[in-house]
Simulated scan of single mutants.
Amino acid sequence: MANGQWYPPEWPDRIRALADGSLTPVAPRRAATVMLLKDPATAQQPSPGPLVHMLRRRTSMAFAAGAYAYPGGGVDPRDEQEIRWAGPTRAWWSSRLGVEEATAQAIVCAAVRETYEEAGVLLAGPTEDTVVGDTTGDDWEADRAALVARDLSFAEFLDRRGLVLRSDLLGAWTRWITPEFEPRRYDTWFFVAALPEGQRTRNASTEADRTVWIRPAEAAAGYDKGELLMMPPTIATLRQLIPYGTAAEALAAAPDRDLTAVLARASLVNGEIVLAWPGHDEFTKHIPTGGTPA
């Protein structure tokens, strides 16, 4: 039975083109995505584990159509603007992410901004130790829409609201880079965060037709049955979340996570193309030089 691994039909031809030199890889765009977690309202013991917020990308999308994913998106150049900031310093994030300070700020800013744009959840507060409550009013929605339209930068939004970005509410989890043969490529940092008290998610994204809170194990089971379509980094991170009993446990584990980038490699072995993601054998594909993957 086939699982739910997202595998575009044009990949074999693009892999062959990359191998023979007729395809030049495009540079990946920096991006950030957030695995937003919450603990279920239950007294069940032992803990059933946290829920993760996922959205299903519309089938009309050019990239990963119909696949389940987390809120996230590309870095906006203005994410490097001077911004009201709390939590670990930019220098700390630079060291953690392995990039320059300005880039580190932009990645963290993109993670917080995209979570607000796509899920309506804002990891920011009036002070360095507080978080805003309900963000569902009309005035909040107007600001969110302005962010999506790029009429307002995130720094300007925080200034207008008198808020500071709470970088301490994020935990860097992993980093994946879209394969070189893809026409749209992203260098994506994955973060974990807990849903702030008083806030609630909503389907605020024009790119999604469904959102769901689901236990990682349940989502992984849906993928294994072929019921939920996902890209490799999504199902890989879901499996990594399964052992944690609470959102706090997952966040506490983040500082020790390895952020070495995962990048798929294609090679010619015994007359077939082998597509592999280092450290993630379950995604390996064997593609006959003139056929479809096995």
Rank of each mutant, 00 (worst) to 15 (best):
D129M: 07
V52Q: 07
D134A: 13
V112W: 06
V148C: 10
A62K: 12
S95V: 06
V108K: 02
R150N: 08
P77Y: 03
F154D: 09
Q44G: 02
R161I: 07
E156Y: 04
A67M: 11
E128H: 13
P88L: 02
A124S: 04
V121Y: 08
F157R: 07
D138G: 11
R96T: 07
T115M: 15
P88M: 02
V132P: 05
V148W: 12
E117N: 09
F63T: 12
T135N: 02
G125N: 09
D138T: 13
L165K: 08
P50M: 05
H53L: 15
T103N: 12
F63A: 07
D134E: 14
T103P: 02
Y70N: 09
E141I: 03
G66T: 02
W92Y: 10
Y70I: 07
G98L: 02
E114P: 09
P77G: 03
L37D: 02
G72R: 04
V121L: 10
G49A: 03
R78Y: 12
L169T: 13
F157A: 15
V121H: 06
G133H: 11
T136F: 01
G66W: 00
T136M: 07
V108W: 04
R84D: 15
A146I: 12
A110W: 00
Q81C: 09
L152W: 06
R144G: 04
S47G: 05
S60V: 10
G72F: 10
R113Y: 05
P126H: 14
E80M: 13
E114T: 08
D79V: 01
G49E: 03
L170Y: 02
W85Q: 05
Y116V: 01
V164Q: 12
F157T: 05
V99C: 15
S94F: 00
C109I: 01
R56E: 06
V164P: 06
E100Y: 05
L163R: 08
Y68K: 02
S95E: 15
R57Q: 11
D151I: 00
D139I: 00
W93Q: 05
S95F: 04
L170S: 03
V121I: 14
C109R: 07
Y68N: 10
D138I: 06
V52C: 12
T135V: 10
A102F: 08
A146G: 01
L122K: 11
Q81T: 06
Q81W: 07
T59N: 13
V52N: 11
L97V: 09
R56N: 04
D79P: 00
L37M: 12
A64E: 15
V148L: 12
C109K: 00
G125L: 08
A69K: 05
R90H: 13
A119Q: 03
R90T: 13
L158H: 06
A65L: 01
L97G: 08
T135I: 01
A41L: 14
V108T: 06
G49M: 04
R160T: 13
V131Y: 10
I107K: 03
A67V: 08
V148Y: 12
R57M: 13
D138S: 15
Q44R: 11
A41S: 14
D159S: 13
S167V: 02
